[in-house]
Amino acid sequence: MKLERKDLLGLRDLSREETELILNTAIPMKDVICRDIKKVPTLRGKAMVTVFYENSTRTRTSFELAGKYLSADTVNLSISTSSVQKGESLRDTIKTIEVMGFDLMVMRHAMSGTPHYVARNTRMRVINAGDGANEHPTQALLDMYTIKEKKGTLEGLKVAIVGDILHSRVARSNIYGLSKFGCDIRVVGPATLMPPGLEKLGVKSYYSLDEAINGVDVINILRIQRERQVSGLFPSLDEYAQLYMLSPRTLARAKDDVLVLHPGPINRGVEISSELADSAQALINEQVTNGVAIRMALLFLMMGGGRDEITY
């Protein structure tokens, strides 16, 4: 069993077997990052570049660290100080990067589908690190890894995704990923932040937080994305917090051993209370650690050799 693809662009068309391979490969990778010597020589001689057209702390740093732990050479292209500011087109920027000899590119872009376009036009392998409101596959994979590590399985779990579903690539990737494992997925948020057509993905929509989290095993809280709120989607952050903020009090309806996930960065007092964010129930920090392991697994599976028969 291996990853039979050049790129990782989303979880939508990833098979259950491929998803399991990535999650299982991340287990020995996590062992590596928990050791004193956090480095293996596996990807010596390989080069990767992170190209982020949107800001990021954890995703970019964690890809870079994952590459370094596996001995790949990693470079960050900082778009704000690059020739993109002189008007270089996306295609020309990508070509320039490609001919420098990189094997793999990690890309984030505000416009959905950009990594797909790039992947079709380069010999480099491409990992989508978030494209608009479409997908953020590595975030969903690390969420799934975190859940599986704590619960032992993903099979049939009840998972609630709370908040701005409309703008959330994290929600979309989680829905695609978790539904491969027969999870009962519920989404909840203000009606204006719920996209149409969710039923087609096999997801139940709720507008009441209490109803949505009744008896759930996992709550994945999304960040209210102020940068994507055009305006008027909800009256105020205060009102949002009143209705949808998770706190130890609102959590009471969920199972006692409910796991609380948040992709970060968190808005304290908006979608999650400070008290809950700092509690043992919240796995926000473990998610970040697991993110490095998941990205190491992907880098290994995509650059770790033994795959010459894949055609580009």
């Binding site: 069993m1 291996k2 391979l21 299982n24 490969t25 287990i27 020995p28 990778m29 062992d31 590596v32 293996v40 020589p41 596996t42 596996l70 697994a297 290994f300 599976l301 770790g304 050799g305 033994g306 795959r307 010459d308 028969e309």
Partner: peptide, 22 residues
Amino acid sequence: LDITLYRDDLTTLAQQPQVHRT
């Protein structure tokens, strides 16, 4: 001990070996 991450023949193997835990 799982030695997959330390092999010197990864790039020449036809099949990528699966990594297991040490």
